[in-house]
Structures are given as structure tokens and as C-alpha cells.
Design a binder for these strands. Structure first.
Lengths: 238, 238
DNA sequence: CAGTGGTCTAGACCACTTT
DNA sequence: AAGTGGTCTAGACCACTGA
């Protein structure tokens, strides 16, 4: 059973998308909505708060709750859950992975720091070339502590590691810290991404954390310069 | 008077930072906290929810509420309000701006689309070179509808446009959509940012929206390649 | 002034985890 | 079974906006 506030949220979101509440218009006040949905005002409020976070509406005390002018632009915005980076953004059929390196090593001091490892705990080192629609999409260099993922097999690498981690093992992802920069093409970029020597590379460096805050993956993804690659985000001030 | 949930939030946050609740430990259950703070459980819950969004804690139904292992890393994280981009991140003394172009023009079709302009409404076109600690930090190309900011003077350009907009006029910013990419150096980059021809450029393209969803600024910022420039974000899955 | 949203209460029931 | 967090109720008071 879905919680009631989520049902209300989805109902109102659909009404906005369907045009029942046009951009800029006021939606019914919270007391009215509470009556209509046969619920309490607190529950309506929770639904509206979340709709505001999703960028559909905004409320002004004393005035009312209004549909944002750009509300419809939000309806296709993918939730920020895209930690897998790829498999969640693109349908599985379009994504392919080619493992280049799959190894167990001792971490460098930088990686030890990023993954907050004690002593010399070994890590997986994975280098994968990833394709979307058979075009090189990214060269991913990934490090994961072995202690968190004891049985990673080479077969998994052809698929989504994340699907394996969240479904097979039972790891809950809590968040990620990302650093995006422009870099010069390296030898590997030229070799695997078919980049020219003078091409700029979009690099996304990230540390992914579990729900309890333990770092769980450190990776560097390098994207070729072909006019298609950009990192997009939507900040909502709420 | 600050709302009570915010006081509770700040109190618990301080206790985490001060080490009263160490990383990984469980904080008191909601009923206990409600008694201690002489409030209702709903109010405690609201405070805890926001602490979770800020990345300090996480809750597991049936188990308890725990301090994230990396909670202390959050304490310096700047809130995502950095729309000014610069003046909010760096102290004012370190930031300088040099206007290169300040003009009023009719928008190209792309800009018209981004700013959702009707007909041929004129826009400001501003090109500024921005310095941090006297080093070139970014070349910012900005477009704003005149209708929203009727009286922008050249003097403001030397300072923070955002400070002017939020304080003098009374515009409330609602969010921003950003697209980050790696680009090749253009003539302007070479001229103003002292980039070499083969240097990659980190480009941040953004549309900033007002609270009611009207787009209000379209800008393209180009950052030089000097090992210092990166765009960092923290995603929290909440 | 009436109407709106923001906050808060003092309970309640339920789902889930742990022992 | 006991303890936890997630949701929900049916009120209440207050701050703010707009006419």
C-alpha cells in the first residue's frame, strides 16, 4: 500500500501534466484539497512539499500554491538516482560494457583516502569501456573495497555492477560526491575512446557512499568529445 | 522566532559535530527526543528528516536513527544556493569583475527559447571576465530579459549582479538547470583566460529560474584549464 | 478583513527490525 | 514481544497576503 501522501502527489502531478492546472495558475488551497482527498491537511501539505522539491509548484504563505511556469519541463527530468550512471539512464539493450582490466590490488594513498580504508585493505581495480548504441560513451576506472563486495565475478562486469550490488547483495546507496572537470586526452583516451590528441575530455570523478556513510566506490569516468557529452543537473532551492 | 523543528535540527547537528553522537552511533529514538525537547514526535521527525537530507543521519524503520560515517564531512558543505557562483563561494574581497561587453540586443532564437521569451523582447548581453585572487577564473556570457531587470547599470557589473537583484530589486530565485561540458578553447578563451590553443575548457551553461518558474538568466561560463577548476556536487538520495 | 500557508500537538495505527 | 521509525488524524494558533 502506497502512503496516502504519495498518491496525492501523483494525482496532482498528473493533473498538472494533463493541463488541469495550467502553468502559473493557483491550485486549490490545502483545506479544500484535504476535503477532496478525504484526508488531513498535514498529509496534503506533505504531498505539496514534495511536489515543490520536484520543481512543479511553489507556495507563498498568505497567497496560495502555484504551478511553476516551467513545471512541464520537470516531467521528464530523471530522478537523481542515476548512480549506475548508465543502466538507469539508458535502456539496458543500448548499453554494452567491455572489461579491460579486472584486478585486485593494494590501493594508492589517494584511493585509500577517498575510500577511507584502514591499513592496506585490498581493492578491486576495474577498467571498463562503456558503449551506448555501440558508440564509446566512457572509460570508467573504478575502485571498490573487497570487504564490501566479497564475490565480484568477471561476468558481472559485462553487465551493470550496480544492479548486481543492489539486487544480489543488499547494499543501499546513500549518495555520491562528484567532481567534474575538463582534462586533456591521455593515451588511454586516444586508444579506447577514439579521441584526438587535442580533444578535451569531460571527466567525472566520484565517491559513492552507502546509506550509512561508508564510501563504497571511487571512480573516474572519462567521456569523449563529440558534442554529445554533458553532465546536467537541476538545483531546486528548497 | 525560529520554528521549533529548526532549533531541534541545529541542536542535534551541533551535538553530532561536537562528538556527542559519534559516527555510526544511534541517536536517541524519536519518542525520547520528543520528551527531551518538550515537543511532539511529528516535530522531531521533521527535524530528523531535514538532517537526513543534509547528509548527517539516516533512519531505518524498525531499527533506529544513526549518524552517517561521513557526517562530519557535511559540516562544511556549502548549501546549493551558490547561484551567484562566485560571490557566495569566495569572500567579496577576492573576487573582481571586468566588464567586456554590456549591451542591449535582440535575442538569437536559441536564447529566446532558453529564456522563454515571446516576440522579440530585448535582452541584456553581458560579457564579464571574472577574477579570483587576481587570477582569471571564468569568462561569463550572460543574457537577461530587460523586462525583469529594468534598470541595470554598468556600475553593478563590477560587483555581484546577484546581490543587486536579490537585495535592491526583490527577485526570489527558485532554481537552476545546468549543463557541464568540456570544450575546445575559443579565440576569446585564449585572449581573456590566457588559455593555450590546446587547453580544454570547462563550460557551465545554465538557466536560472525565479521562484515562479520564469527563466531569468541564461549564461555560459568558461573556465580555464589550470588544474584548479572543477564543478563539485553532492547528491543525497533522499 | 478573510483566506492562505507554516507550524505544532497529542494522540493513533502500522511496518519493520532485533532479540 | 518489544522497540523502532513511517504515516496519519483532527484539530489549533500564528504569520502573511491581498482586497
Amino acid at each position: 500500500m502506497e502512503p496516502k501522501y504519495k498518491q496525492i502527489l501523483e494525482t496532482i502531478k498528473k493533473q498538472i501534466i494533463d493541463g488541469k492546472y495550467p502553468a502559473g495558475s493557483m491550485i486549490p488551497d490545502q483545506n479544500t484539497l484535504a476535503r477532496d482527498f478525504k484526508t488531513s491537511r498535514m498529509t496534503v501539505k506533505k504531498a505539496l512539499d514534495m511536489l515543490a522539491i520536484e520543481g512543479f509548484i511553489y507556495s507563498k504563505r498568505g497567497a496560495g500554491t502555484f504551478v511553476k511556469k516551467n513545471a512541464l519541463a520537470q516531467k521528464d527530468a530523471l530522478p537523481v538516482d542515476s548512480y549506475g550512471g548508465l543502466s538507469s539512464q539508458f535502456s539496458k539493450a543500448r548499453v554494452k560494457s567491455e572489461p579491460i582490466v579486472f584486478d585486485v590490488t593494494f590501493p594508492t594513498s589517494e584511493i585509500k583516502e577517498r575510500l577511507e580504508l584502514k591499513q592496506n585493505e585490498p581493492v578491486y581495480e576495474i577498467l571498463r569501456l562503456r558503449f551506448v548504441d555501440d558508440e564509446p560513451y566512457a572509460l570508467e576506472h573504478t575502485f571498490m573495497p573487497i570487504s564490501l563486495v566479497p564475490n565480484l565475478s568477471q561476468e558481472v562486469l559485462f553487465d551493470s555492477i550496480y544492479a548486481y550490488l543492489t539486487k544480489e547483495i543488499h547494499l543501499e546507496i546513500g549518495g555520491a560526491f562528484r567532481k567534474i572537470s575538463a582534462e586533456k586526452a591521455s593515451k588511454n583516451d586516444i586508444k579506447y575512446l577514439a579521441s584526438a590528441e587535442t580533444d578535451p575530455i569531460l571527466q567525472v570523478e566520484q565517491v559513492v557512499y552507502l546509506q550509512d556513510g561508508r564510501p563504497f566506490e571511487y571512480s573516474i569516468s572519462r567521456h569523449p568529445y563529440n558534442g554529445k557529452h554533458a553532465y546536467t543537473i537541476f538545483d531546486c532551492k528548497n
